[in-house]
Design a binder for these strands. Structure first.
Lengths: 176, 176
DNA sequence: AAGTTTTTATTCAAATTTGCGTACCATGTC
DNA sequence: GACATGGTACGCAAATTTGAATAAAAACTT
């Protein structure tokens, strides 16, 4: 939940919001792609952190809308956790690595087909990211959010290069 | 649970094992670094899949050791899910992206320090991966498992390059 | 203005993951 | 043989995540 917490606290830094709006903001910075931020997670996280004193519940009239406001303790917590995220190198979790683990369970022919297909798909995905960056901030997200997309593209590119390389070796029978 | 399932089924492909041994194998291919494979997950997953008919429980005498054997349905499931993993481009989940999201919440000076530190740490991590690959298979994992490490190193390298780039821009005041 | 769709806002059960607690058994050791 | 040590093997409560269900309000249709 560590990442979820940072995201929630971070979104609330500039003023109280209710759960739905929190979700909107996260979607805006495309965080829904790379973090665990389904509705349930958000409401759960907000509730939990309110119980812990990192947030403060502000009832907002009828409907039962609940605004969550970050507390001083919340701000402190945010900073601590944010720094952790900068300093810790955590292994990258990519389901594709699971596929690689069982490389040897596919026939060489199937493997080559799968690798070629993935390479093509990566190319398309990278292109799309590029275009998304061009089509600047249609959504009003801050500038530095593109950087995340750029980093993403670079990592996909790295994966693609690796595939190109490995493909050769598979063709020469050196892999798996 | 999709990835967990593939891993569990995949490990059982060559013969029945009990939970503890499954864990050992996964550790052996360093899968514990990049997948969700705590003990609880394993026993839960094995039990669940046994209930679903993908695995078959084989009691092994005293102690209550339970061996799990993959069924035909299980093999089919494995193949389907494995192929999914090859064909789907899922966004890479890296907690560091959370840190990037809030780039603008650090003072420029702190940001520069954090980026430099991370770059250095990445360098070290990449070096370690390299050496781990050199120190070939101390553990008896199949050859193609190094490839995962190699891919990992490449992606970390990409991250490091990105940081180098962004650092310049931060210094010039173009970011965030 | 009645009816329909969309957007807003939240809740809930079910699935999953974590990490620690608990045994058991073999081995060495004094 | 009493006893510590460490590897083997599993269970469980608590925390987290998901995804779908719900329902009120706003916006649009006719």
């Amino acid at each position: 939940m560590s990442s979820t917490r940072v995201l929630l606290l971070g979104v609330l830094l500039d003023g109280p919001l209710h759960g739905y709006e929190v979700r909107r903001r996260l979607e805006m910075w495309a965080a829904d792609g790379w973090a665990n931020v389904a509705y349930g997670s958000i409401y759960h996280g907000l509730g939990k952190m309110a119980d812990e004193g990192l947030l403060h519940r502000v009832e907002e009239g009828r409907g039962g809308k609940t605004l969550y406001e970050i507390t001083e303790a919340g701000r402190a917590e945010f900073m601590v956790r944010l720094m952790n995220h900068w300093w810790e190198i955590k292994p990258i979790v990519d389901p594709f690595q699971v596929a690689l683990t069982f490389m040897d369970r596919l026939s060489p022919a199937d493997l080559v087909v799968a690798m070629e297909a993935r390479s093509a798909q990566l190319k398309a995905a990278i292109g799309m990211l590029g275009r998304a960056i061009e089509a600047k901030r249609a959504h009003g997200a801050p500038r530095h959010i593109d950087e995340i997309l750029r980093l993403n593209a670079a990592q996909l590119e790295a994966q693609r290069n690796w595939i190109g390389d490995a493909l050769e070796r598979v063709r020469r029978g050196e892999l798996p």
